[in-house]
Write a protein that binds this DNA or RNA. Structure first.
Lengths: 232, 232
DNA sequence: TCACTAACTTAGTTTACACTAAAGCTGCCG
DNA sequence: CGGCAGCTTTAGTGTAAACTAAGTTAGTGA
């Protein structure tokens, strides 16, 4: 249909593929589906990627870079380590906003483990996870050094538990398990991990935030635990 | 080849399918693969299950029942609530022993989210997760009532965070991400959540266990993060 | 031992997958 | 205007998926 410079087309294909892989899985999404959704024909895909697997791996890699960028952006305005950690806890990349613009990308990583038999894909995912872990270890370490975060656990362990929780949360969200992660009072698992790590400090800040929230919106139960934007 | 009563064949097919779905994913594992691995021909599958999806859903359901049974068995000899909770933390069903007997079953649940577009499968998985959550809420509640576990968080939230962590851990294990969940000193994320919830009590028991381990095997590096426990 | 039931196979059908050869456009530079 | 670089399409290929009609074999009870 519409002409496009190669680089742009490639990005668009990745975007489209992200959406489809995320909803159908790797084996479930077909190349013709992807092509159609991108508004082109199949051979275009093979002009830009050697194979379907190649496309998928490219997507995993791009998602990794995106995530790091997202985090860095999220943290830009927060120099103080404990505050930075708090923001990371609240900004779980694994929970995509699947709405509109198409940032549901992260579900791809979760889908990737479908291909447990494919070493190349596994490798891409493992690299990705380790990159996230390294990033978090660094942040946790600095937060601990600042004195506001307990040194009871090593940064490695703390970072892993953050990844595990974030991933678990992301998986259930991706599966559409509704109301997971919250209780009837509206408490959220994010608060648990935040409070456990940051202690009193986190709780007070949360209470303030909730207060402000109540003042903006009317009072009411905060339904939908699964598909909340940017939470986890 | 060998004849088999229907019920037994059905179970065998479920076992085989579990193994293949777990490694190949839902769309990735084919009916002919499953049949061949089970030592029969394809139509046999369709004698026992209406469709591939039907087989998969049956598997999800059976896995749910198995997990509850496993947990109940694990807890049989532990009447004391805090001890029961501790055992649950250490016995994560999502981490399958894929060896021998075929208990790698749980990866199926993780794979299930591949089929995000299929409402029937999603439904089966959501039911499953909620069943596990209900079970855990009950246990956490009793542990809290016993006075040994902090009531800082509701049983619902605590149970969700256990599920999130367990699931995240399981996903990374299934993907073969090596060395996740531990640090150089050999500390484990399980210890983190256990200690956070059960406080001093958990740590002492762990130290005892590690002590015994050291006495059995040679000496190894051991870590101490020593700081005051915030839990009551 | 015969016959009946139920487990099982053979041999397909239809559909759709990943991937490709070759030719058709379209806009850009001289 | 003319040519050409390279994006895009048409029209396929071979393969393998889910699923099935109809027949074959084996155990079981009278």
């Amino acid at each position: 249909m519409t002409r496009m410079p190669a680089a742009k087309r490639r990005e668009q294909l990745l975007d489209t593929a992200a959406r489809l892989f995320a909803t159908q899985g790797y084996a479930g999404a077909t190349t013709s589906q992807i092509a159609r959704a991108a508004g082109v024909t199949e051979p275009i895909i093979y002009r830009h990627f050697a194979s379907k697997r190649d496309l998928f791996i490219a997507l995993v890699d791009r998602t990794g870079d995106d995530t790091i960028k997202l985090w860095e952006h999220e943290l830009r305005s927060a120099p103080e380590p404990a505050e930075r950690l708090k923001r990371l806890i609240r900004a779980n990349p694994m929970v995509g906003h699947k709405s509109a613009g198409g940032r549901g990308v992260y579900r791809v990583i979760i889908q990737a483990m479908t291909e447990v038999e494919d070493p190349q894909i596994l490798d891409a995912v493992a690299r990705h996870i380790k990159m996230l872990h390294t990033f978090l270890v660094d942040e946790v370490g600095r937060a601990q050094d600042s004195g506001h975060v307990s040194k009871r656990f090593t940064p490695e362990i703390t970072a892993w538990s953050l990844i595990h929780m974030g991933l678990g949360y992301g998986v259930l969200s991706a599966m559409g398990v509704i109301q997971h992660g919250i209780d009837q009072k509206g408490n959220h698992v994010q608060d648990l991990i935040g409070e456990l790590m940051l202690g009193e400090r986190y709780r007070k800040q949360q209470q303030q935030a909730q207060q402000q929230q109540r003042e903006r919106h009317g009072p009411g139960a905060s339904g939908e635990g699964g598909e909340k934007v940017e939470n986890g």
